[in-house]
Design a protein around this nucleic acid. Structure first.
Lengths: 213, 213
DNA sequence: CCTTCTTAATAGACTGATCTATCAAATTCT
DNA sequence: AGAATTTGATAGATCAGTCTATTAAGAAGG
């Protein structure tokens, strides 16, 4: 039988330890030795499950993070009271994560991007895909609220940029202020549009871009 | 005499090579050997000018970047036609930098933050200071345009968050789209307020927060 | 003007630690 | 037993950092 501590599966534990370490120390700063230790896995297991080494592990960590937090975005849009509320909730959730971890647990995808975008096409591409998953989740939430395709795409890029940057600033400052400040302004932009979308739905007369104030 | 290539001074060359490498490979991913080689400096010089090693070099790189790009923000506010224009110009300048470097030259302070915020208080604090310099530059530009102190502070955090995050997304995607999308929405937020400030100046009757709509 | 003293900078060999990666032995399952 | 999986020892490279020696350049003193 398998025995102690392996109830989750070694590969899964390695992936989780990888995500955690990439969050706190970046990709380059996280060694496989630390990683296997944190996962409670023997050294050889890393190369058993990821024969192509650290890069492969990194790619899979990023992909998993993309899926996981993509679900988080979708859930937030499902649960919340309108797109502005959904987005603000994610900002606030992120602020809580940062505070609870003493501002260590940043975004693993951003960390991997900055460490590897210039040196590993495989990792850069994995990060691009993970961001793409999140962008589409946000985009979907906005479209469901009435945004046109193009507007949803552009807004999603803005929303994700704002939260990713705010995480960086919050970590440096060890303060939730950048996240909360950004949340308010992003929400303002989204809410204003959401109102237009509601109006356009209620009265589908005008072609596009109702009036400008 | 000094001889070839040293006309800038070895320390300065080390700092510049450090900034460049931190931009492209992050702090942890940039080795001192690469760094001294890129600077055309002998190995020993790194420890001659930075006796406390890589961490000290990192701190000074970050401080210098803080000062340099802080001046850039101020210049943009001086030259531009209003705060919205100034901010959009910085976004567009950053997009040009990314395109010209094939999306390798990101923000050195963000890179150092993500790699070291959890492991080196000295570096985390240096990054916080550099961001603070930029925040105050933006804040100053906004106040000059009529923003109140509190509004300028909050807006500056939002603006810097948006551009930092957009740089990350643009690097991952190898596309200027996130920067340009964010620029438009940030500008919308700033321009709308700038109009209020102008109105409040022209007609200083109402107490605060003129009308909403 | 020339010599000597002093300090700054250059230069690279070297150390111990740590990194990624390999691999053959050990273990587990069928 | 035999096949598949798991495992830790270890190789080879590279890391940050130390050390000693050399060169450059000026200051002090005759």
């Amino acid at each position: 039988m398998k025995d102690r501590a392996a109830s989750i599966g070694t590969k899964e534990r390695l992936l989780r330890a990888g995500e955690q370490l990439f969050r706190t120390r970046g990709y380059a700063g996280a060694s496989l030795k630390q990683l296997t230790q944190a996962a409670g896995a023997p050294w050889g297991s890393a190369y058993h499950f990821f024969p192509d080494g650290k890069e492969q592990l990194g790619v899979e960590v990023v992909r998993q993070a993309g899926d996981f937090y993509g679900d988080g975005w979708r859930e937030s849009f499902d649960r919340a009271d309108g797109p502005g509320d959904a987005i603000e909730r994610v900002f606030r959730a992120e602020a809580r994560i940062l505070e609870a971890s003493d501002y260590r647990n940043g975004c693993p995808v951003a960390s991997v991007t900055l460490d590897t975008a210039s040196t590993s096409e495989a990792l850069r591409s994995a990060c691009a895909s993970a961001f793409e998953v999140w962008l589409r989740a946000i985009e979907g939430g906005l479209r469901k609220a009435g945004a046109s395709d193009g507007e949803a795409t552009a807004l999603a890029g803005f929303v994700l940029s704002a939260i990713e940057g705010a995480i960086v600033l919050s970590r440096a400052a060890k303060s939730p202020a950048p996240l909360l400040q950004s949340a308010a302004f992003v929400r303002e932009v989204v809410d204003r549009r959401a109102e237009d979308w509601r109006a356009a739905r209620a009265n589908p007369v005008q072609t596009e871009s109702s009036e400008r104030g």
